[in-house]
């Protein structure tokens, strides 16, 4: 446990060298990936979403591809195509960028729903089917998607069912003044990225990932988790309650968070820490209203549920 904590701390420190002042977000991202979940980063352009994704790919030592989502992106641009080769007189499959361990799906909500669904199906199944042939995706397989706030021009908001496939949604926000000063005076981020060395190989990563579900969850904690789910379903503030999948996501994220803290058991605080990021994109208020402020208010309602 403690060696895992040391490894994670190193990872977080390395990433913080590049993405300044965002250690909590970095740790959340790591927790998400350790819990084998896909991550959605939502924020304004230019706050470092892409950089964060790059950093994570680099330090985890994963083979990664970046797909820039645009409104004219087609499924074949993601999945790959078969082309006819004259010499061989046969079709050859050219794998698309989806065949990598870590996919950076940049500005995912700029693409049409058709292209989005090609990615999202791959996320869910862990495999893609192209021209009648099913091809497995590499192991591990992560998607880090970034998206712009949905009220911006030229966006196709992801439907709720697809949002549900992301384990966590985080946003970065502006850096604090000290970090910003460092950013302005420091080296170019691209240079730093280039020099960044992986701190983990895939075997180590797999070992940590298998440790996550083994983190102990006491009955008392499950009571709390169920109280949260129950509250979201009973309360009149929510139009839809949290699904069982949301409950599982919450549990796995909390386990990953506890593991990263070097503990062999989950505490209510772990759940509370990951709660806003796990449920934020899954809750809908009953009164409509502005989405962001609404989500914060809803999360506050859930966070106020008493710990049994």
């Amino acid at each position: 446990m403690t060696d895992i904590k040391a490894v994670i701390d190193t990872l977080a420190a390395r990433a913080s060298d590049v993405v300044l002042g965002k250690e909590h977000e970095i740790r959340l991202s790591l927790a998400c990936l350790l819990a084998r979940g896909h991550l959605l980063i939502e924020d304004l352009p230019g706050v470092g979403k892409t950089t964060l994704a790059h950093v994570l790919a680099k330090i985890l030592g994963l083979e990664y591809h970046r797909i820039q989502f645009t409104s004219d992106l087609l499924p074949a641009d993601i999945l790959g195509v078969s082309i006819f080769e004259k010499e061989r007189g046969d079709f050859r499959f050219l794998p698309g960028p989806i065949f990598a361990q870590l996919i950076l799906a940049d500005e995912v909500n700029r693409a049409t729903p058709k292209a989005q669904s090609a990615l999202l199906e791959a996320m869910e199944e862990g495999q893609v089917t192209i021209e009648g042939e099913t091809r497995p995706l590499p192991e591990p397989f992560f998607v880090i998607a970034t998206q712009n706030p949905t009220h911006q021009i030229g966006t196709f908001p992801l439907p709720e069912s697809q949002l549900d496939r992301f384990l966590m949604r985080i946003s970065l926000g502006y850096p604090n003044p000290r970090a910003e000063r460092k950013l302005l005076t420091g080296q170019d981020r691209r240079e730093l990225l280039k020099d960044l060395q992986p701190c983990l190989d895939s075997a180590q990563l797999a070992r940590i990932q298998t440790a996550v579900p083994q983190v102990h969850v006491a009955d008392a904690l499950l009571d709390y988790l169920q109280a949260l789910l129950h509250s979201s379903r009973q309360s009149s503030h929510f139009s839809v309650g949290l699904s069982p999948r949301a409950g599982l996501s919450l549990l796995h994220s909390a386990q990953a968070w506890a593991l990263m803290a070097g503990r062999d058991h989950v505490l209510p605080e772990d759940v509370q820490t990951v709660l806003p990021h796990v449920v934020g994109h899954r809750l809908r208020g009953s009164n409509g209203g502005d989405e962001d402020t609404n989500a914060d208010a809803l999360i506050a309602k859930l966070a106020a549920v008493a710990i049994p």
Binding site: E269, A303, A306
Partner: peptide, 8 residues
């Protein structure tokens, strides 16, 4: 606070 965990 009823919603406060033991560590916090």
């Amino acid at each position: 606070n009823p919603a406060e965990g033991p560590q916090d």
